[in-house]
């Protein structure tokens, strides 16, 4: 189509020797070539590469943005970990302190209890001893009374049958016995 037009246009054309005068057929070929290249390259291909370049810019910027986000996240994470670690350390220290206090308290309590127990035992022992002594003393008293009356009866030959008299004698004897030599008896 264009070539036919060019031929038609070229037909009356002479090869002019003036280089500033364009050949008509060259004008036609030139505009044809330019139009075709412009249509294919300028209209079809350049938009594609522009789209790709925009995608590339997006990808690079997106990558940078993603990297920044990841870095920020990592920093936040690190901060959180550090905080947690710090808190854990504080907790551990606190627990240790508490444990130490509790141990001291327990020790003190135990000691207190042991002392109380010891005191109680000692007191119980004292009471027991006192009771035993009282019992022994009481028993001894009656025993001594009986023995001495028996002895005295045998020596004197006198029956000391009368209970009242008998015990009065014993008591008096014992009182006499106790008064000068109380310390010795006890």
């Amino acid at each position: 189509m264009t070539s036919m037009a060019a031929r038609l246009l070229a037909a009356p054309e002479e090869h002019s020797s003036n280089p500033l005068i364009p050949h008509t057929y060259e004008l036609v070929v030139g505009i044809f070539a330019f139009a075709v290249v412009f249509f294919v390259v300028g209209r079809m291909l350049i938009p594609r590469i522009q789209k790709t370049l925009a995608e590339r810019t997006d990808a690079i910027e997106g990558g940078i943005k993603r990297a920044e986000e990841a870095q920020a996240e990592a920093q936040a994470l690190q901060k959180r970990y550090t905080e947690q670690l710090e808190e854990a350390r504080r907790d551990a220290a606190r627990l240790r302190e508490e444990a130490r206090e509790q141990a001291a308290q327990i020790k003190a309590e135990l000691r207190e209890e042991a002392q109380a127990e010891a005191r109680r035992l000692v007191e119980a022992a004292h009471a027991q001893i006192e009771a035993d002594r009282q019992a022994a003393f009481a028993q001894l008293r009656t025993e001594i009374g009986r023995l001495s009356t028996d002895l005295a009866g045998r020596i004197v030959g006198e029956s000391l049958e009368d209970e009242a008299r008998q015990s009065r004698i014993v008591d008096r004897f014992l009182d006499e016995l106790e008064s000068p030599n109380a310390q010795a008896v006890r």
């Binding site: 246009l9 057929y25 060259e26 590469i49 789209k51």
Partner: peptide, 28 residues
């Protein structure tokens, strides 16, 4: 008459430009 060397080269150039741009940018 019209098919001279410059005309041929002009068309070849057009084909070349289209070809290389097509190879490069058809599936960028």
């Amino acid at each position: 008459e019209w098919f001279t060397k410059p005309v041929l080269l002009a068309l070849l150039s057009a084909v070349f430009v289209i070809g290389i741009c097509w190879a490069a940018f058809a599936n960028p």
